Simulated assay, not measured.
Amino acid sequence: MITYEDHCLRALAADGRWPELLAAYRRHRAAAVERSGEESAAAVTAPLGHLIAYAAPPELAVRLFDRDGGPGTVAGVADHDAGPLWEVLATRHSWLRLAPLLVPAAVRRLVAQTRVLIGEDLSYGAEPDPEGVPLVLEPWETAGWEEGTRVREYLPHGGARTALLTLPAGREGLGEVELPDPGMGLRGQRATRALGALAPWAEVACVRGPAPQAAAQLARGTRVAGGFTRVTGGYVPFALVYPALVQAAAVDRAHGSAHGRLALWRALAAMAGAGGPDRAEVNALVARMRCFTWLEPAAGLRHLHVALEDPACGLAWAVRGSEEL
């Protein structure tokens, strides 16, 4: 329901009275923090924050994240409505406009990574990422996306359009496959933990063996003679796997696609045995990686079923999960 106050705020926005809207945001947020804490305050003020981040001039919109308003007034990286406020801001202005204005390091980094996902090359126009994640998309990062689906498309007064990325998306290119014996799973792998951090609803398993053997650790299919599992599955290029892995980490509205890209680069670096997101090591891993995906009969609207094999080290990781939206 649209309240009288909502009408007043939208009227102020229509008149371009952004300083008054920012003052209202800060006043309401500080009062809500004092009354019921940060989490509640972020939820109460998120719709107004969204309006400011979306439509205000960048010089004012960035002040959502400045501490000059006093205790309780500043939006944090987790403040969100349809998505995080910093991602809303990042979709509206180029890095050239935002770079001189943004101060908080965490927000600045996430905005930069969002601009990279949108398609900007910041490798020569921004400070290096603290973990070494490239500030330009690799060719395999761009190949599997449909136009305009890397980041949520935000709407002026709240809400967003989001691509429903699933893996696999359908039966095309897949066939009946009898998975091998799952063998013994390996525990304690740094890459297993990193892949598990992508999505809280996903299971991850690691084996010494090929991708279908890792899939057999987690897959739900038809049991056949000998205790093996039959699924509809097949191999796909990593370029088609990448978007679903990035978006898996951005399902939570407090997280944006930048979280997904950063988390996936950490996971790929761990799979490659690198100490951090080394560009050459990750590119070499992606070039040799074999990816196996499979369908499951009870998968939710958002689902992820993939096994990632590194032939160089003989290990494979399976990631499986589904979530109703």
Rank of each mutant, 00 (worst) to 15 (best):
D121G: 08
A249P: 04
G170R: 13
R220C: 10
Q189M: 11
H7F: 11
P100T: 05
L218W: 02
A126R: 03
R220H: 14
P104G: 01
A31Y: 02
D181E: 14
T142Y: 04
T45C: 14
Y154A: 11
G273Y: 08
W140R: 10
E147P: 14
L268P: 00
A263P: 01
S123Y: 06
L117S: 00
D252I: 04
L301Y: 14
P156C: 01
A269G: 03
V282D: 03
R27M: 08
G234K: 03
V177H: 11
W294P: 00
T3F: 04
Y242A: 01
A169R: 15
L315A: 13
V241N: 07
A11W: 15
A248I: 03
T3G: 05
V111S: 07
E153N: 09
D6N: 06
H255Q: 10
V241E: 05
P156E: 13
A191F: 07
T232F: 13
L167G: 08
P58N: 04
T232A: 09
H259A: 02
E120M: 10
R109D: 01
W140L: 10
H50F: 09
E296I: 13
A225F: 09
L89S: 08
L285V: 08
G185H: 08
A126M: 07
A307N: 12
Q213S: 09
W265Q: 02
A299P: 03
C206N: 07
L9K: 03
P58D: 05
C291P: 06
G16S: 11
Q113S: 00
G276T: 08
T166Q: 11
R92M: 11
V204N: 03
A244E: 03
V224N: 10
H303D: 12
H28Y: 11
H93L: 12
R17L: 14
P168H: 05
A14M: 12
H303F: 12
A269T: 02
I2V: 15
E323R: 15
D66Y: 07
A191H: 07
V177E: 13
L325F: 15
V241D: 05
T166G: 02
L174K: 14
P311C: 08
V133M: 00
E176K: 12
G209E: 15
E59H: 09
V251E: 11
A143P: 09
R108Y: 05
S40N: 12
D181P: 07
M289W: 02
L89C: 06
A318C: 11
G196H: 03
L195P: 02
P84D: 10
P84N: 07
P297Y: 03
L240V: 11
A312W: 09
L9I: 06
I2N: 06
G83N: 02
Q213F: 08
L325W: 10
A61P: 02
M289Y: 03
A215L: 06
